[in-house]
C-alpha cells in the first residue's frame, strides 16, 4: 500500500463521493415523487393515464440503466434534445427509479382497506383529503421497507454515471487507476467510499423500518 498516494487523493475521492451522493439523492427524491404520482394513477384507476403509466413502469423496470443513460446522453442530442451530463444523470435515475417506486407505493396503497377510503368520505372529506389524511399515511408505513430498498438500489446504480463524463466515485477511481497504476490503492479507496455512503443509508433504513413496523397501527386484530 502506498499511503502517500492514498492521502494525496483523499480529496479527489471526497469530491467524487459528493457527486455520487448528491445526484443519487436528487434521483431518489425525483423517483419517489414520480413513483408516488404513478402509484396514485394506478391505484385510483385514472383512465388513459393508467395505460401510459403501466407502459412506463414496464419500460423502466425491464431495461438496464446503462442503456437508458446511453440513449439519453448520446442518442437524444442527435434528434435535437440536448441534456447536460448532470441532467441526464437525474433524468436517467428518475426514469429507472420512478418505475420501482411506483410499484412500492402501489402495493402500499393496495394494502389499505377499501373501507378506509369510504370511512373518510363518509365524514365528508373530499377524495384528495381522504387520500392525504387517511390513505397515504397508512400506505407509506406499509411501503417503507420497499421504498428504502429502492433508495439503496438507486444510490448503487449511480456507479453508472461514469459513462456520462461526470466525476463521480467510479470515474475518479477510473481516472486515477489508468493514470497512476496504483490499482489496489484506488480500488480500496473506492470500496471504502461506497461503504461510507451506503452504510449510513442502510442503517437509517433499518431503523425507520423497525419504527414503522412497531408503530402499532397495523392491521392486527388484537383486542
Amino acid at each position: 500500500m502506498d499511503w502517500s498516494f492514498i492521502t494525496a487523493h483523499v480529496p479527489d475521492f471526497l469530491a467524487g463521493a459528493w457527486v455520487t451522493l448528491r445526484f443519487g439523492l436528487y434521483g431518489v427524491a425525483c423517483s419517489a415523487m414520480l413513483g408516488l404520482l404513478c402509484s396514485l394513477v394506478l391505484a385510483y384507476r385514472v383512465p388513459v393515464l393508467r395505460a401510459l403509466v403501466r407502459a412506463y413502469v414496464e419500460l423502466s423496470r425491464n431495461t438496464p440503466l446503462l442503456v437508458q443513460l446511453f440513449f439519453l446522453y448520446a442518442g437524444l442530442p442527435r434528434i435535437g434534445i440536448r441534456l447536460s451530463a448532470e441532467a441526464c444523470a437525474v433524468v436517467g435515475l428518475t426514469f429507472l427509479g420512478g418505475g420501482y417506486m411506483a410499484e412500492a407505493f402501489r402495493s402500499g396503497l393496495e394494502a389499505v382497506d377499501r373501507t378506509q377510503r369510504e370511512a373518510g368520505e363518509c365524514i365528508g372529506l373530499t377524495l384528495p383529503q381522504t387520500v392525504r389524511y387517511v390513505v397515504l399515511p397508512q400506505a407509506f408505513a406499509t411501503a417503507a421497507p420497499a421504498v428504502f430498498a429502492n433508495m439503496i438500489f438507486l444510490i448503487k446504480e449511480t456507479s453508472m454515471f461514469s459513462v456520462l463524463a461526470m466525476m463521480d466515485l467510479m470515474n475518479v477511481a477510473d481516472t486515477l487507476r489508468t493514470s497512476g497504476g496504483r490499482t489496489i490503492e484506488v480500488l480500496s479507496m473506492l470500496v471504502i467510499a461506497y461503504v461510507a455512503i451506503l452504510l449510513p443509508v442502510s442503517v437509517l433504513a433499518t431503523l425507520v423500518e423497525r419504527r414503522m413496523r412497531y408503530a402499532g397501527f397495523g392491521h392486527q386484530h388484537s383486542v
Binding site: 382497506d113 373501507t115 378506509q116 373518510g120 363518509c122 365524514i123 377524495l127 389524511y133 387517511v134 397508512q138
Partner: peptide
C-alpha cells in the same frame, strides 16, 4: 362530499383510522 357531511354513516367494521389516535380520528372531519 358536501352531501355526505350532512349524512353520517357507521359501518359494521368500525373503520376507524388505525394510524390516528382516537382524538385525531374524531377531529379530522
Amino acid at each position: 362530499h358536501l352531501v355526505r357531511q350532512k349524512i353520517g354513516m357507521v359501518f359494521q367494521s368500525y373503520d376507524l383510522f388505525p394510524h390516528m389516535r382516537v382524538m385525531d380520528n374524531l377531529m379530522l372531519g
